[in-house]
Design a protein around this nucleic acid. Sequence first.
RNA 1: GCCCCGUUAGUCUAGCGGUCAGGACACGGCCCUCUCAAGGCUGGGACAGGAGUUCAAUUCUCCUACGGGGCACCA
Length: 612
Amino acid sequence: MSRTCRPTGSTTLTAAARGGTFSPPYCRTRGQDGAGGAVSTARLPRILMLLSFRRGAAVSDRRTHPNPWPHEAAMAIPVPATPVRVRIAPSPTGDPHVGTAYIGLFNAAFALRHGGQFILRIEDTDQKRSTRQSETAIFDSLHWVGLRWDEGPDVGGPCGPYRQSERSSIYLAHSQLLLDNGTAYRCFCTAERLEAVRADQRSRKETARYDGFCRGLDPTHADRRAQQGEACVVRLRMRQEGETAVPDALRGQVVYDNRQIDDQVLIKSDGLPTYHLANVVDDHLMGITHVIRAEEWLNSTPKHLALYEAFGWTPPVFVHMPLLRNADKSKISKRKNPTSLQYYQRAGILPEAMLNFLALMGYSRKDEAGADIEKFGFAEFAADLELSRISLGGPVFDLEKLRWINGLYIRAMTPAELADRAVRWFGQDDRAAEIAALVQERVPELGDYMHHAGPFYRGSLDYGANARYLLVGCASRKKYAVRMPIAASRAFFEDVIAGLESLTEWSAPAIEAVLRATLATIPAAIGDGMMAVRVAVCGRPASPPLFESIAAIGRATVLVRLREVCNLLAEPRALADIAAGLRQELQATESALAAALGAPAVASSPSAAGST
RNA sequence: GCCCCGUUAGUCUAGCGGUCAGGACACGGCCCUCUCAAGGCUGGGACAGGAGUUCAAUUCUCCUACGGGGCACCA
């Protein structure tokens, strides 16, 4: 039972042969809607081909389970005779995300496996949130984990430009095509009206979607209004009856009622395309054969299919990967997990370990004996990658296992290699000089360097006995110190996080401004508040100048630490444990001391533990 | 609320009608050992529930429950 992808000519059954009645995989009920007159018959051979593969196809299977399409089990991923072209399309809004590396890994490996190309495209159609800084950070981080792309904004290629913000005219021209053939229309509805419609629909417990107010507008009249400068968007004219079946390569046919699907905005009033339009146009123009993306896109695929149909194009093969999860199984988020690749890089995770770990999320490899192979590199992974073997349950991103794998790689090095890697990791860090400058005054001997520089080179921190400083003012020696309770301290840290998150420029003065502004809102003394932040960020009550330190530690890491402090403070039990531990520790020390001095042990007072 | 996807131990997974339900992380015990790791041995721990199909269901079908995602002029 072969699991290998085979070219078109393989011997598996065709959908027609199996199913008897055959209709195209999407829009199974063709609408009578005359407006959308786009071609579709040209696609048929391709579609047949897509359907002619199923996972481990065996005729006997079909006999025992004459399970008619479309409830077909997942099929093996079809690989056409044309070269495989895949892509990732990250949006440059914020820190480079582990999810990007995850999807990138599977795309890149799939391309390598089939001798195709892997393309990086930047989806920066959201003017408000996209930044160049974020874009270069994405390049850097993806390079860091070892991903290389054949085409992209930084390396060029025959299908450029690879930045959507540089392709506006292309999208506009294509939207005009749809306007011309009637599969799209102009909409002049205001945001307020749309919101009212949605609220109304929700109150009536219906799916919130556009109500088609501008659907019937006369096109020439609408064009004139647009020309006169009236703000408008372009919407897709979605078929209003029948069903659309999405052929997902891992799930089989996923069927949607067309009435559930919105008349999606294609061109925003700023003239830029939405993701949906840009993505379909680019994938087609760039010759993408397989769209391997996250599951969160599954529900919008019917819209994409409708677009391919409106243009008369052949859609690619769709593969929706499971979503990486937090420990509570929700979609991975920075609130509950470090999600920034920069965090892992600075925490000393090896890129090859990160990639290896990511490959284990939803995928597994076995040796001849049937035992799992846990440690493997990109090339090995790609060599026998079979997308149809991906398991669909959302894998929890487990830091413990990541650390274990990282240790595997570290132990596999020769001591000389490890020394070399470690020294390079410290030395080539672009912050090395910055950190040295901060630590310099506190280093009487070189040997002290590591102690003081430690917090700059770690990921999350272990607060231990210093945890008490996290309660603002509680460890203060000031005479009239305001001691803030747990909840208030946590709220304070939440505010600090919000302030730091909103910073466009990550610099000491900017950080100082945020901290001072936040401190102004709490009753505690400035110094006491700063101390709490210092311990949260540096792990100790003694550190180099705070603002500079925060700047040097870096946004991703600082925010992870602050969020962990919030989580810690949200768990009173953990705090009580810390307090109890402190008291015990103190008592033990005193007893030991007393014993050593030959005097009876003195009962210690709880207040000596530092919390009042 | 509506739609879609998913469900094997705390976690990552194997399994594609008949298995003592396999491996890994984590956890416990023992060994090694000056400590801590690492390593070796070992232990506990899972098919969400209910119907149905079948001689036989973890595996196929349906229902329920639970988890997740989507429902934007964000991607």
